[in-house]
Amino acid sequence: MDRPIRVLVGKVGLDGHDRGVKVVASALRDAGMEVIYTGLHQTPENVVRAAVEEDVEVVAISILSGAHMTLFPRLLELLRENGRDDILLCGGGIIPEKDRLALEKIGVGALFGPGTDTTEIVSYLEEEVKKRRAR
């Protein structure tokens, strides 16, 4: 990578489980990425505004509240409205496989579940961003 990947890591909705998001944020930073963390209880609008302002290449969202089928589609919609569907939207949390497949189908990137090795997330982001930069 010629320049570091800029990632917005965020929590959307009401759930306060921030163990995973902080572990991932630290791992991405240690892997040389520029990481911006939104903090808790953000609306999709806040997150997309921050993503545009910070000009990130990746938005990584953590959800453990079961609201993923509402919040991920809303984030995608807002990115498109802002003309920024070049930004990779991906994430993780407690998301059943059925829902994960449905979300991937509408354009959400990989969604990582419990037990994922952070190196797997790092290499996924590196590959995806490389592909996107080459476009």
Partner: peptide
Amino acid sequence: DMPTLMGHDSDDPLSLGEVGRE
């Protein structure tokens, strides 16, 4: 559920998608 824990009614816009889930 999350809206109740955060003190929001179920019809609050912030509760959207979270009612009765957790």
